[in-house]
Computed example of a mutant assay.
Amino acid sequence: MFTAIFLTRQDKAVRAELTSLEESQLPTGNVDVRIEYSTLNYKDALAITGRGAVIRNWPAIPGIDLAGVVEQSSDPAWQEGERVVVTGWGLGEEHWGGLAQRARLSSAWLLRLPDGFSTRSAMAVGTAGFTAALCVMSLQQHGLTPGDGEVLVTGAAGGVGSIAVALLGALGYRVVASTGRPQESDYLTGLGAARIVDRAEFMQPGKPLQSERWAGVVDTVGSHTLVNACASTRWNGAVAACGLAQGPDFPGTVMPFILRGVTLYGINSVFVDNAKRERAWRLIARCIDQRLLDSMTTEIGLSQVIDYCPRLLEGKVRGRTVVDVNR
């Protein structure tokens, strides 16, 4: 038996409960993992509350991240006792996810726990940190250097935004953090932001071309925020888009792209080859120490997850949320 957050659906209504399941109920896979820690992400909260069409196969266990220990493997590449981390690959969407004490997975999805990380600290990074690293890597590959000008991070107090601020700050970029929570200013400057701006200036419709302000942008918000960020990005600048907290729409024009040569990079962290995953984890390990990671992390137990979800969706949660699945 193991404990899990279990989702069922009837007449389009989602029911979430903390329950016990038999290991025989686990889906097909060639590696069994005893989970130690998971995370609670925006996507997980949408799935658990039924506010978003996240789950593809019902019934389901949510959770797009997990870290734990291999208990059994039919793939000789993985041995009992090895510590692993899994993010993406449809976990918590098409396949039963990490908000449970057990998982049965494809061995192709596993990554050995990166050097310098425990299973808990790996989940303090999780998909959010991995996504932030992919955003930063896209800006670097574009050719953006620390001396090129300010880099805007939207949704900066959230999970992806917090780690993006920390990564960019550690790499020497001048980071401007956009947030709707002015009380988080000290938190954001502690992560590496040079200054804070109010998200309100980006959230309404704006001119298709605006004053050139940003050498680069990491956007976690979408909608008008992303459009305004593109419209105010400098000549040949780059924008990495990875979220839709404001909305999935893009109510803008092509003018920043055809008149200023702005490049918009779409960041998908779900289906990324393991070689690129390893590069992203090395970047995080190099730039973010444990003290800084702890400062942006809150830990809850699996039994608290369902009640915690509305707070996350309402923007009342700062940074990363790690879930101890054994309490």
Rank of each mutant, 00 (worst) to 15 (best):
M1G: 11
A4L: 05
L7T: 07
R15H: 12
G29H: 11
N30A: 07
R34V: 01
N41G: 09
N41L: 06
D44E: 10
I48Y: 03
G52A: 04
G52M: 04
I55D: 02
N57P: 06
P62D: 13
P62H: 10
P62L: 11
G63S: 09
D65A: 05
L66V: 06
A67N: 15
V69L: 02
V69M: 11
Q72A: 12
A77Q: 14
E82M: 07
V86A: 12
V86F: 08
G92K: 00
S118A: 04
A122G: 03
T127D: 13
F130M: 03
V153H: 15
V153E: 11
A156R: 03
A156Q: 14
V160T: 05
I163P: 00
V165C: 04
L168H: 07
R174F: 04
V176F: 02
G180K: 07
D186Y: 07
D186M: 08
L191G: 04
L191C: 10
A193Q: 08
R195K: 15
R195I: 09
I196K: 07
D198V: 01
R199I: 06
E201M: 15
F202P: 00
S211E: 15
E212L: 08
V217W: 00
D219T: 05
T220K: 04
V221D: 05
S223Q: 09
T225L: 02
A229L: 00
C230P: 02
T233G: 02
W235C: 12
N236H: 14
A238L: 06
A240F: 05
G247Q: 07
P256W: 03
R260Q: 10
T263Y: 08
Y265M: 06
S269Q: 08
R277V: 13
C287Q: 14
C287R: 09
I288Q: 01
R291A: 14
L292E: 09
S295F: 11
D307K: 11
R311L: 09
R311A: 13
L313C: 06
G315M: 07
T321E: 14
D324L: 10
D324N: 15
N326Q: 09
